[in-house]
Computed example of a mutant assay.
Amino acid sequence: MIVSGGEALVDLVPAGPEGDLLAPRLGGGPYNVALAAARLGAPTAFLSRVSTDAFGDALVRRLEASGVDTSLVQRGPEPTTLAVVTLDDDSSARYSFYTDGTADRLVSDPGPLPEGTTALSVGTLGMVLEPGASVYETVLRREHERGVLTAVDPNVRADMIADPDAYRVRFSSWLPSVELLKVSLDDACWLAGVTDVADVLAAARSWLDAGPSAVVLTKGAEGVVLLTSSGLDVTVPGATVEVVDTIGAGDTVQGALLAWLVRNQVKDLSALSEDDCRELLTYASRAAAVTVSRSGAEPPTEDELQQCV
C-alpha cells in the first residue's frame, strides 16, 4: 500500500466566461497524489488531519469515492486550508494560501504505518507548516528505517517559506531518508539557487549522492528526466495535449510513479534498467497529460489512461 501524507485543501479556481469567478476544487499536493495513485489502481491511504467543516466532509468523500483508504485521516473542528489560484497566460497555476489555524497542520504522529505499507510520499505544505511538518518528517525517517520506499516532492511554495536558507538546509536533511525525489524544474532551480539547466542537473546529481536512489525532474511540456544513483540518465518527451490548466500535474506524476513502482514490486530504484525507466516515465507523463487537459486536479483512472494509448 502507498501512504501519501500532507495537506488536504480547497483550491479556489478561476471560472466563468472571463475567469472572473472562483470555483472551489478539492485538492492539496499530497491529497492529489493519493487520488492519482488510487485511481490508477494502487492500494493507497491518505495521512492527514482534515476539518469537520463542509469542505472537509467533501474532501473525505472524494477520497473514498476514488478508492483511497481513509483510516489514517484524523478529523478536527479547525477550518480547511484555502488556496486562491491564478492562471498565467500559459495556464500555469500560481497559489495564495490561507493556512492560519487550519486542520491539516495539526496532524499528530500515527506511529508506525500499517502492515503492508510499501511506499510513503510526503511533501508540499505538509513539510513546511508546523507543527505538522515535524510530524511528517518523523514519519518519513521512521518508515525509511523500516524499509518502506520513501518519496518526497517538495512542491515548493516559496511565498509560504519564511526562511528559504533554513528550508534548504532542512530539505538536505531529508535526503538520507529519501529513495525517490521528484522535483519540478522550477523547484529544483529554487532549491539549488541556480537558473541554468546544466547547474540543475549537477544539483540533482549531488542530491543523489546524499541518499536518494532516483531523482525525477519534471520540465512541463519539455518532458521528464530520471537520474539514478547507478548512473542512468533517461528523458521522455511530454505528451502533446491541449492544456486547460496545470493544477495537479506534478502530483499526478508522483502518484503515477508510485503506482507503477508498487505494481511492479520495485524496491531498489537504482536497479531499474533504461527500458524500465523509460516505461515508468512514459506512464507518469501520460497520466499528467490527462490531468492538465481538465480543469482542476482530476487525475485519470487506469481505464481512462489506457483509452489514451
Score class of each variant (00 low, 15 high):
Gly27His: 00
Gly6Ala: 12
Arg25Asp: 11
Val225Phe: 11
His144Met: 12
Val236Phe: 01
Thr240Gly: 09
Val139Lys: 02
Leu191Pro: 06
Glu137Cys: 06
Val178Tyr: 00
Arg294Pro: 07
Ala198Tyr: 10
Arg205Asn: 14
Thr138Val: 04
Glu78Asp: 14
Gly41Glu: 05
Gly147His: 07
Pro79Gly: 08
Asp20Phe: 12
Val169Ala: 15
Asp275Ile: 02
Ala188Gly: 13
Ser173Lys: 11
Val200Trp: 09
Asp196Glu: 15
Leu26Phe: 14
Ala133Met: 12
Tyr31Lys: 07
Ser66Ile: 04
Val197Pro: 13
Trp174Glu: 02
Asp89Glu: 13
Ser230Glu: 07
Gly223Trp: 06
Ala204Gly: 08
Thr80Pro: 02
Arg75Cys: 00
Glu222Phe: 11
Thr291Trp: 06
Val13Phe: 03
Lys219Met: 15
Leu227Glu: 08
Arg105Trp: 10
Arg168Val: 08
Val169Glu: 15
Gly111Thr: 07
Gly238Glu: 01
Asp199Leu: 05
Leu258Tyr: 04
Thr150Asn: 09
Thr70Trp: 09
Glu302Tyr: 09
Phe46Cys: 02
Val243Leu: 03
Val60Pro: 02
Trp260Cys: 01
Glu279Asn: 01
Asp199Cys: 03
Pro110His: 08
Arg105Gly: 06
Gly220Lys: 15
Gly101Ile: 05
Pro110Thr: 02
Asp186Ile: 06
Thr86Arg: 07
Ala256Arg: 04
Ala151Leu: 05
Asp196Trp: 11
Glu304Tyr: 11
Gly19Asn: 11
Leu140Trp: 02
Asp153Ala: 12
Val292Asp: 01
Asp165Gln: 10
Leu232Thr: 08
Ser173Pro: 02
Arg168Asp: 10
Pro164Ser: 09
Ala65Gly: 04
Asp109Glu: 11
Val262Tyr: 00
Pro212Val: 11
Thr228Gln: 07
Asp69Pro: 09
Ala256Thr: 10
Ala8Thr: 11
Ser66Asn: 11
Glu115Pro: 05
Arg170Glu: 09
Val290Glu: 10
Glu18Leu: 15
Asp163Ile: 13
Asp109Ile: 12
Ala162Tyr: 06
Glu7Phe: 03
Glu242Tyr: 04
Arg105Phe: 10
Phe97Trp: 10
Val148Asp: 02
Arg105His: 12
Gly116His: 12
Arg61Tyr: 12
Val13Glu: 05
Asp165His: 08
Pro112Gln: 03
Arg294Gly: 11
Arg157Pro: 04
Ser273Thr: 14
Trp207Thr: 08
Lys219Trp: 05
Leu261Glu: 09
Leu87Cys: 05
Ser108Pro: 04
Asn264Thr: 04
Lys267Val: 13
Gly6Cys: 08
Leu12Trp: 15
Ala249Ile: 01
Gly28Ala: 08
Leu9Thr: 04
Leu180Phe: 07
Ala93His: 05
Thr52Ala: 10
Leu106Phe: 13
Gly255His: 04
Val60Gly: 00
Leu217Asn: 06
Arg278Met: 01
Ala203Tyr: 08
Ser285Val: 01
Leu72Lys: 14
Leu191Asn: 02
Pro24Asn: 01
Ala221Tyr: 08
Pro131Val: 06
Val85Tyr: 04
Leu226Tyr: 02
Arg142Tyr: 06
Thr86Asn: 11
Val60Tyr: 03
Asp186Phe: 04
Cys308Ile: 14
Arg141Tyr: 12
Ala83Tyr: 01
Tyr283His: 14
Thr246Val: 09
Gly6His: 03
Pro300Asn: 01
Leu82Met: 12
Pro43Phe: 02
Leu9Arg: 02
Val244Ser: 00
Ala288Gln: 00
Arg205Trp: 13
Asp100Leu: 08
Gly41Asp: 03
Glu115Asn: 13
Val244Cys: 01
Ser172Met: 14
